[in-house]
Simulated scan of single mutants.
Amino acid sequence: MVDVNGIRLHIAEQGSGPLVVLLHGFPESWHSWRHQFGPLADAGFRVVAPDQRGYGRSDRPAAVDAYTILHLVGDVVGLIHALGEEKAYVVGHDWGAPVAWHTALLRPDVVLGVAGLSVPPPFRGTQPPLAAMEKRFDGRFYWNYFDRPGVADAEFGKDPRTTLRKFLSWASGDAPDAGAGRQPLVDPERGWLATMADPEVLPDWLTEEDLDVLTESFAQGFTGALNWYRNLDRNWELTAAWHGAVVTSRALYIYGDRDLVPAFPGTPELIARLPTLLPNLWRAPLELPGCGHWTQQERPDEVNEALVEFLTA
Rank of each mutant, 00 (worst) to 15 (best):
179 G>A: 05
247 V>R: 09
161 R>A: 10
190 R>M: 14
213 V>W: 05
231 N>Y: 03
161 R>N: 14
208 E>R: 08
158 K>F: 12
178 A>K: 00
241 A>P: 05
225 A>W: 04
213 V>K: 05
139 G>D: 08
174 D>H: 05
161 R>I: 05
226 L>I: 07
206 L>E: 08
157 G>F: 10
219 A>R: 07
145 Y>W: 09
195 T>H: 13
231 N>Q: 13
217 S>T: 13
150 G>M: 03
239 T>Q: 11
205 W>D: 10
250 R>P: 05
217 S>A: 14
217 S>G: 13
184 P>G: 10
218 F>P: 06
219 A>V: 00
242 W>C: 11
165 R>C: 11
174 D>Q: 10
174 D>W: 03
259 D>G: 01
214 L>F: 12
200 E>R: 13
174 D>Y: 04
227 N>Y: 09
243 H>S: 12
147 D>T: 04
213 V>S: 06
233 D>E: 09
263 A>V: 10
218 F>D: 12
217 S>D: 15
250 R>Y: 09
147 D>G: 04
266 G>K: 15
265 P>T: 14
187 D>M: 13
130 L>W: 00
173 G>M: 00
159 D>C: 03
160 P>E: 15
133 M>I: 00
181 G>N: 09
143 W>S: 03
244 G>H: 08
152 A>S: 07
196 M>Q: 15
226 L>F: 05
177 D>K: 06
170 W>E: 13
171 A>Q: 08
267 T>A: 11
204 D>E: 07
147 D>K: 02
183 Q>D: 14
203 P>Q: 08
259 D>P: 02
194 A>S: 15
201 V>H: 09
197 A>T: 11
247 V>H: 11
164 L>P: 11
260 L>K: 01
137 F>M: 10
165 R>D: 14
165 R>F: 11
259 D>N: 06
161 R>D: 12
236 W>G: 10
223 T>C: 06
229 Y>R: 04
233 D>H: 04
250 R>V: 12
221 G>P: 06
155 E>Y: 08
196 M>K: 14
192 W>T: 06
197 A>C: 10
182 R>N: 06
229 Y>K: 00
175 A>Q: 05
243 H>Q: 12
241 A>W: 02
188 P>Y: 10
149 P>K: 00
151 V>H: 02
222 F>G: 02
145 Y>K: 01
207 T>V: 00
196 M>N: 15
257 D>Y: 03
174 D>E: 02
167 F>K: 07
190 R>A: 15
130 L>H: 01
233 D>R: 04
219 A>Y: 05
130 L>K: 02
243 H>D: 13
149 P>N: 03
162 T>D: 15
154 A>Q: 08
256 G>W: 02
178 A>T: 00
196 M>E: 14
162 T>V: 13
171 A>R: 07
258 R>I: 04
138 D>K: 12
248 T>F: 02
252 L>C: 15
163 T>R: 09
208 E>Q: 00
239 T>C: 12
